[in-house]
Amino acid sequence: MHHSIHDETHLSNRNHWLRAAVLGANDGLISTASLLVGVAAAGPSSQTLLLTGMAALTAGALSMAAGEYISVSSQADTEKADLDKERYELTHNAERELLELTKIYEARGLNHELARQVAVSLTEHSALETHARDEIGLTDLSQAKPIHASVASGLSFVAGAILPIIGIVLLPASTLVWSLAILTIMGLILLGIISARLGGAPVIRATTRIVTWGILAMMATALIGRLFGVAV
């Protein structure tokens, strides 16, 4: 079978939402589990634990979504400012911008004449798009998308936080503290595997990284609780 166009799916194209999703799920799982482990140690009723977990899930998801939206919106504003500046320069200093583009291609290994020809050709095709990509480093795939990042972050926080909440309902109350800790570690392992598969990273390295930092975060929470007189 003959294919005239060979389309490759590059894993880095997922960066704009994968980072937000992994961060959200990791934060949702660790923060909610750490909170519930600390509260469970005081021996409250399962209803109190469930309400605590749901409150943590709701507040955390909204906070993550809002924070991600604000952060990525700031990035989008910066990108827009760069494009506006470049648009102005192309209008008022076209020859200088052409020379700038030529030097970029020379730095990549082309001789001066070929670099100049490429710069002229691409400028005639789409000057702003060419400068945005090759001078500033912006493409359609890399441009900040606040809504996408916000939704991915909020929903993934919920996905991470729901695991320890389910644990409250299903796990025996007598061993809830340790059971939640073990369940959280299992969740971190699963998150590491999923993120590695989606991002094309080595599974063991990605999983070890997430589990190690997750355990350290829970240990830090337990230590702080102990310092303030709360048995975790």
Results as ranks from 00 to 15, higher is better:
202 P>F: 09
171 L>I: 01
209 R>Y: 07
28 G>S: 04
148 H>N: 13
15 N>C: 07
16 H>G: 08
53 G>W: 00
165 I>E: 00
18 L>F: 05
8 E>D: 11
118 V>S: 04
197 R>M: 12
98 L>C: 09
124 E>M: 11
93 N>E: 12
200 G>D: 00
210 I>P: 04
137 G>P: 04
58 T>C: 15
24 G>C: 01
182 I>S: 05
123 T>P: 09
9 T>M: 13
148 H>L: 15
109 G>Q: 05
83 L>K: 09
41 A>Y: 04
141 L>G: 13
119 A>E: 01
80 K>R: 14
179 S>F: 02
137 G>S: 06
229 G>H: 05
179 S>R: 05
51 L>R: 12
112 H>K: 15
22 V>F: 04
190 L>C: 10
218 M>R: 02
107 A>D: 12
61 A>S: 09
138 L>W: 03
7 D>G: 09
98 L>R: 15
213 W>A: 09
22 V>C: 03
181 A>K: 05
91 T>Q: 12
10 H>C: 07
117 Q>V: 10
158 V>Y: 08
132 A>P: 08
110 L>K: 11
227 L>E: 11
171 L>R: 00
12 S>G: 09
191 L>V: 05
11 L>F: 15
155 L>Y: 05
54 M>Q: 12
45 S>V: 07
32 T>K: 02
128 L>C: 08
161 A>S: 07
176 L>N: 01
119 A>T: 05
94 A>L: 11
174 S>V: 12
102 T>V: 06
198 L>P: 03
131 H>I: 04
33 A>I: 02
203 V>C: 06
112 H>V: 10
197 R>W: 15
89 E>T: 09
118 V>G: 02
223 L>H: 07
117 Q>K: 15
15 N>W: 13
121 S>W: 14
95 E>D: 13
114 L>Q: 12
64 M>V: 03
115 A>C: 02
214 G>Y: 02
203 V>N: 07
205 R>E: 10
3 H>E: 09
160 G>R: 00
14 R>D: 05
214 G>V: 01
141 L>S: 14
155 L>W: 04
102 T>P: 02
146 P>D: 01
64 M>Q: 04
25 A>R: 01
100 E>D: 12
93 N>K: 13
148 H>C: 11
110 L>C: 07
166 I>K: 07
194 I>W: 08
89 E>N: 14
93 N>L: 10
31 S>Y: 05
206 A>V: 10
24 G>K: 00
43 G>M: 05
222 A>W: 11
160 G>Y: 00
